[in-house]
């Protein structure tokens, strides 16, 4: 497969890198001929006691999750599958799920990658060990680069044990109070692993040792949500099957400091990550999510739908923009990989 990929790259024509197509909706332009990565699939190495899994890019996320679950382990950043995601796409898109605020994002768990660069060279960065500071951290640079720097052919990820115990609690409260509560909890040694506020209800998941979860659950109070209902609530939230995500209104993702007060934007709001990730359904022309995010010290992404001409991602300041262009050139001098998917000039 690598040889076939290389031949495509050496044609020097724009390629649209694609695994399961689960994130076709995501990003700016989708230009070029599709290069399907799914033929390059399979788990190469998984050693539960080393806490590392290595897989080829086209391996379905579902396959990885079930291999890990068999050994009571998990991808702790809970990436969304949005259908048939592949592990290469998970890393390239850099999207993380409900547990992100508690344990970290995709980039916090990537230990190493192999990539084909824009000249068709197969390069290895990082490795399969937890601590590795040899050379620049190119593996993490790949996370969220939307395939614009190279074709990720293989990834090694740190995995974690599944929590022994979990409990989900629900509180009735308005947004301001929910933000206060979430930030307050995060400052205490509590086993909070996910939070979600929507429609005056704050849902909290606790994960960890049995004793810690039980103690926190009785401490925090709230209404206990049954295990089955809780599991499907968090799954639906991660996969954006929650009712909030249905409908055609543009879906904006605002990444802001968790303590930012309620944003003054028209449209329904759903909050995750202890306040740091806020989803808003904007009616076109009525809301300036980008300005609201910037004034709160963060950034906004037009995640799904809406008017794409306004740009999907928050524009960069000039110095960062120049560094982006130079890095793009460093890895993909002929502009082969996903041109324009992230920004028009990378």
């Amino acid at each position: 497969m690598i040889e076939q990929f290389r031949e495509r790259i050496l044609d020097k024509k724009p390629l649209r890198l694609r695994g399961g197509g689960s994130k076709d909706f995501y990003g700016q332009e989708r230009r070029g001929d599709i290069l399907d990565t799914r033929g390059h699939a399979g788990i190469l190495d998984y050693e539960p006691t080393e806490l590392v899994i290595t897989a080829k890019c086209g391996t379905p996320l579902a396959e990885i999750k079930s291999a890990l679950a068999e050994r009571r382990q998990m991808l702790a950043f809970e990436p969304p599958a949005f259908g048939d995601a592949t592990i290469g796409g998970v890393v390239a898109a850099g999207l993380s799920g409900p547990r992100r605020a508690a344990v970290g994002a995709v980039r916090d768990f990537v230990l190493g990658v192999k990539i084909l660069d824009g000249e068709g060279r197969l390069l290895t960065f990082g490795g399969q060990v937890m601590k590795n500071v040899a050379g620049y951290d190119v593996s993490r640079l790949m996370c969220g680069s939307l395939g614009t720097l190279g074709l990720i052919t293989e990834v090694s990820l740190k995995v974690l044990p599944l929590p022994v115990a979990e409990a989900t609690l629900r509180f009735d409260c308005p947004q301001g109070r929910a933000l206060e509560l979430m930030n307050g909890w995060a400052g205490k040694p509590l086993p909070v692993s996910a939070t979600c506020w929507h429609d005056d209800a704050l849902t909290v998941r606790l994960s960890g040792a049995r004793a810690a979860v039980d103690a926190a659950a009785s401490n925090l109070g709230g209404e206990k949500v049954g295990a089955a209902e809780a599991a499907s609530f968090w799954d639906d939230l991660r996969e954006q099957r929650h009712a909030f995500f249905s409908g055609d209104a543009a879906l904006w993702r605002l990444s802001v400091p968790s303590v930012a007060p309620a944003l003054d934007l028209p449209g329904a709001t759903l909050i995750e990550w202890g306040g740091a990730q806020r989803w808003v359904r904007c009616v076109e022309g009525s809301c300036d999510a980008r300005a609201a995010a910037a004034s709160a010290g963060g950034h906004a992404t037009q995640f799904r739908g809406g008017d794409r001409s306004v740009g999907i991602f928050q524009p960069l300041d000039p110095v960062l923009g120049r560094i982006h262009r130079d890095l793009k050139r460093a890895f993909d001098p002929h502009g082969v990989f996903n041109p324009g998917r992230l920004y028009p000039d990378v």
Binding site: A105, Y136, L141, H299, T301, D317, H324
Partner: peptide, 25 residues
Amino acid sequence: GEVVEFGNHALDAPGYDLLALMIGS
């Protein structure tokens, strides 16, 4: 001599993860 910021006080920043690239450089 250009002043530049990598990352922010949110949990992620737009574009490439230059914060990760800076750390350990």
